[in-house]
Design a protein around this nucleic acid. Structure first.
Lengths: 159, 159
DNA sequence: CATAATCTTGACTGTAAAAATAGGGTATGA
DNA sequence: TCATACCCTATTTTTACAGTCAAGATTATG
């Protein structure tokens, strides 16, 4: 039992995005280089994150991805959900009917386990798993403004 | 992310064994019939459970498997461990060293998750996931076999 | 002792999901 | 209009899993 790479990579990518993009769009290729994850693969992840309303994209040159909200308002649970990871322990946690008895006995145990995981994931936000605690969230207005381009590209370099 | 069938079947098998064998050895073929799990496959599971000191085997005619201890003294965590299920969320929960930073940030989260799961599994015993709460545990004396070395594999050498 | 019942082990295989790649399309700033 | 970077989908590669089979060892019982 292991979390899929989709989820692990996705979380790493978001963490990277939070700490690197100080309000500016971050490109997939930058994240790819820093995190050593295939760019094509990352694009698939970001497509899911975009559909899940975790990130927003800016197309064209100097484009990239931004969080839709401040990192402190995005829970890990949301991200996991957006990435399509389903955490299943017992057999009948998804379906209503349950055929045999011993089976159902255990399902109560698994339910307890799942609840406790969910509680943690719901109460942890993105900024808590980011280095600087910075956010690459940016309001709609700011993004359209050309003034932003005067950039700080800078300071933090993780190799 | 899903528990392997090894663990799910294994737990069902043990649950069956607890409720069916009232002190007497339970055969794999009986469990196979009742739980609708391939006997060959079940034998693999029981081999693991025996190595993990969860069950003990009685060989020969009228043989079968027994718990090594009362069901109330065997935790689900032990069983999961014996079956070889490793519950891993982050990447570096097994190894000490950790190469990059964002990675490590998330590992604290995954550590918290894992701890909470472990707590539940450690505090749940087999009898809690069994129907009648019966135990097929049997004391050493009650079994008539003179040579019941539970889990000692030595003495086997073919040149 | 012979036989049957059962455990024990290891190798083997097909399948399905996960992981990763590839390539062409669309928007946009300089 | 060109380079950049997102966008989409199909395809391939890889790996882990579920399950089978067969031969052998051990022991109870008639």
């Amino acid at each position: 039992m292991k979390l899929s790479t989709v989820t692990r990579y996705g979380l790493r990518a978001l963490s990277d995005l939070c700490s690197q993009g100080h309000g500016k769009p971050v490109t997939v290729s930058d994240i790819s280089r820093r995190q050593d994850i295939s760019a094509s693969y990352l694009e698939q992840l970001f497509a899911k994150l975009r559909r899940g309303n975790i990130v927003r994209s800016v197309r064209g040159a100097r484009g990239g991805y931004l969080l839709t909200r401040p990192a402190s308002e995005i829970t890990v649970a949301e991200v996991v959900r957006a990435l399509g990871e389903s955490i299943v322990f017992g057999d009948c946690q998804t379906e209503a009917g349950c055929s045999n008895l011993p089976h159902c006995r255990t399902s109560r145990l698994w339910g307890k386990v799942k609840d406790s995981i969910d509680t943690i994931l719901e109460s942890t936000t993105l900024d808590e798993i980011t280095e600087g605690g910075e956010t690459s969230f940016i309001s709609e207005d700011e993004v359209l403004s050309p003034k932003l381009s005067g950039g700080i590209d800078n300071a933090k370099r993780v190799s």
